[in-house]
């Protein structure tokens, strides 16, 4: 078991890379759209589009979404290698969940904050940027770190489209050496350590960096 550890490290790197890149891209797209979604009027057609997108992402398994992109990209004339198909698929998936994170965080701030700052003479733009968002962003941190562990776990599914991440790398070794259970145990340890450190780091950010006296109970967004 010890001797194969170095051979798993490149796979582990790909797993971290793919999840981190997807999280960053999806945060740019998803949180932004989620904040917009929270501020648009109920009749706005943009709401319909975003809601349909979120429904699709939450209503289908990740493996199906990965297959759809993997098979659809060539039909549309796009030649991408699996690595990038994987990143696009995870980004597409995660952005859907992050729209909900952004929307929920903004809506949890409460209309009173909005009304109060408007009546103090702040413009709509100032209210959003100076009053609502600074508070909302803090509430996004916990669900976002949760999303990071979801992404790490989802990245294992990219093995089915031959992305050489941790699970695929371990599979390749075990089908050559027939040591299935040993390699699966190793993988489990790798993933556990990775995900536990992400969530410990998240808790540290929550408790020491962002502790603004808002009250611990109030902070548990999940």
């Amino acid at each position: 078991m010890i001797e194969v550890v170095p051979r798993l490290l490149p796979g582990l790197r790909t797993t971290i890379e793919v999840s981190a890149i997807s999280l960053a891209l999806a945060t740019l797209i998803g949180i932004w759209l989620g904040v917009i979604r929270a501020f648009t009027k109920a009749r706005n057609p943009l709401n319909w589009v975003l809601d349909a997108y979120v429904f699709f992402v939450r209503g289908t398994p990740i493996i199906v979404q990965i297959f759809v992109l993997f098979f659809l990209a060539p039909e549309l004339g796009l030649r991408l290698d699996p690595y990038w198909v994987g990143i696009i698929a995870l980004t597409f998936n995660s952005a859907g969940y992050q729209i909900e994170i952004g929307r929920a965080a903004v809506q949890s701030i409460g209309a009173a904050q909005f009304d109060a700052s408007r009546s103090l003479g702040l413009s709509r733009r100032q209210t959003i940027w100076l009053v609502i968002l600074p508070q909302a962003v803090r509430r996004m941190i916990a669900p976002l770190t949760n999303e990071m562990s979801q992404l790490i776990k989802a990245s294992s599914v990219l093995s089915v489209i031959t992305v050489f991440e941790l699970h695929k790398a371990a599979n390749a070794i075990s089908s050559a050496s027939y040591k299935y259970v040993e390699l699966l145990a190793l993988q489990a340890v790798f993933y556990l350590v990775l995900i536990l450190s992400v969530s410990r780091f998240a808790r540290w950010i929550e408790t020491s960096v962002l502790d603004t006296g808002e009250g611990g109970a109030d902070f548990q967004v999940r």
């Binding site: 790490i152 990245s155 294992s156 093995s159 699970h167 993988q187 489990a188 556990l192």
Partner: peptide, 21 residues
Amino acid sequence: EFTRGVPPLVQIAIIYFALPR
């Protein structure tokens, strides 16, 4: 912690290979 921290795909593979053992 194990069930929540290890990808479902890996857990499925573990059960699949471990049961016959």
